[in-house]
């Protein structure tokens, strides 16, 4: 698909042929995971288990986008950790505040029961 590289010559020299195999591979992985997410959403009944599967699949997708498309996998270890450690803390934030949400709901709906 991407093999129609230009044939007009440039002053700076020969233009190399594009290498795009890894890009399309990542693309098909992303499409595949998205299709799987849809299948899981419609085949399974809503439950914590189903949502866990969806979240894990989402993290897979995020991994492919960040590692391949954003090239983070090929950066130095220092940069990878600089990005990943703060992001990991967000999982804590999310778990903590969702628990808090359930507690608020509990207080509102069942406090006087």
């Amino acid at each position: 698909m991407a093999h129609n590289a230009t044939d007009h010559t440039q002053p700076t020299g020969e233009i190399q042929k594009p290498v795009t195999g890894w890009i399309w591979k990542t693309f098909f992985v992303l499409v595949g995971i998205t299709a799987l997410e849809f299948a899981v959403t419609f085949i399974m009944d809503p439950s914590t288990f189903r949502n866990s599967i969806l979240i894990i699949l989402t993290i897979f997708k995020a991994f492919f986008i960040v590692a391949e498309f954003m090239h983070l996998k090929h950066e130095t270890k220092g940069l990878i950790w600089t990005i990943m450690i703060p992001m990991a803390l967000l999982i804590w934030l999310m778990v903590a505040l969702i628990t808090e949400g359930s507690a608020i709901g509990e207080a509102i709906f069942s406090a006087f029961k």
Binding site: M87, L90, L93, I98, T99, G101, S102
Partner: peptide
């Protein structure tokens, strides 16, 4: 990274509010 924090705050708020409702 800082932008990711903003979006995470939005989505976390969504999670909190969703669990606060029935």
């Amino acid at each position: 990274l800082s932008d990711a924090f903003t979006f995470a705050a939005f989505l976390t708020t969504y999670g909190l509010m969703r669990h606060r409702h029935l």
